[in-house]
Nucleic acid binder design. Structure first.
Length: 250
RNA sequence: UCAUGCU
């Protein structure tokens, strides 16, 4: 199976689903039964091509072949539906996952749903998923919170991102990572607050976290977005500081 | 061999 799945993955990454289908036929002819990974890979290809109805079709094919969907199956399906703007339907898929297929949704599935709402700035609904996952017995993780933070940072509300950064630590004992801080810095970028971004960098160093190329570029971009010679100077200083810190600019 | 967050 792995041999065939590897070839199938290569076609799927190229978006060549018809070729991938051909590999599945070859498998069967060789007496090798497609497994969950086979279907997941094909499902992902349809998701990436923006063909959510074909995603549902793959799920039916799995049922017909008596292959039980996995957590990843639903992760991919939910992502495909969300990317197609069908977030409410994705939420229904999560319920079916649980009730019809007996597969308990994990944090990745919920996080994908959060992202679906967050990327459309549906703040209420995104926040509601955080509560729903806990009711289902799934603890939010750093990705859950970072995804929500990104929603607020994207619209220039770093204070709300900051509140979530606090909440993940106090309520769930989570440790924010570089990505979480980068998202916080993005809030200051959208708010055009260079000093705010610098404060994020300082806080990371205090906590022993090394800012990465994204973090630095976000704050550099903040100074650049503010205009004026003095701010450009701050941007250049930071570019140098970044190199001194051993973080190669890209 | 397959799914989620930042420039």
């Amino acid at each position: 199976v792995r041999s065939f799945n590897t070839v199938l993955l290569a076609w799927c990454e190229e978006g060549q689903v018809e070729e991938a289908r051909g590999i599945m036929r070859m498998m069967r002819n060789a007496g090798v039964a497609p497994d969950a990974v086979t279907y997941n890979t094909l499902l992902k290809a349809y998701a990436m091509l923006g063909r959510p109805d074909d995603c549902w079709r793959v799920l039916r094919e799995m049922a017909n072949a008596y292959v039980k969907p996995t957590e990843r199956t639903f992760g991919i399906l939910v992502q495909g539906l969300c990317d197609a703007g069908r977030v409410a339907e994705a939420e229904r898929a999560v319920r079916r996952m649980h009730h019809d297929y007996g597969v308990a949704p994990n944090s990745t599935v919920y996080n994908t749903l959060i992202k679906g709402y967050a990327s459309r700035q549906l703040e209420e609904q995104a926040q509601l998923v955080l509560g729903a996952m806990q009711e289902a017995g799934v603890e939010p993780d750093v990705v859950s919170y970072t995804t929500l933070m990104n929603m607020w940072s994207s619209c220039g509300m770093p204070a709300l991102s900051r509140a979530l950064l606090q909440e993940m630590q106090e309520r769930h004992g989570l440790t924010p990572d570089v990505e979480a801080y980068s998202v916080l810095a993005k809030g200051h970028l959208r708010a055009r607050d260079g000093e705010g971004g610098e404060a994020v960098l300082a806080e990371m160093q205090e906590r022993g976290l090394q800012p990465n190329v994204v973090t630095y570029t976000t704050v550099i971009s903040t100074w650049c977005s503010m205009g004026g010679a003095a701010n450009m100077e701050r941007a250049l200083q930071l570019l140098e500081a970044m190199m001194v810190a051993g973080v190669p600019p890209n």
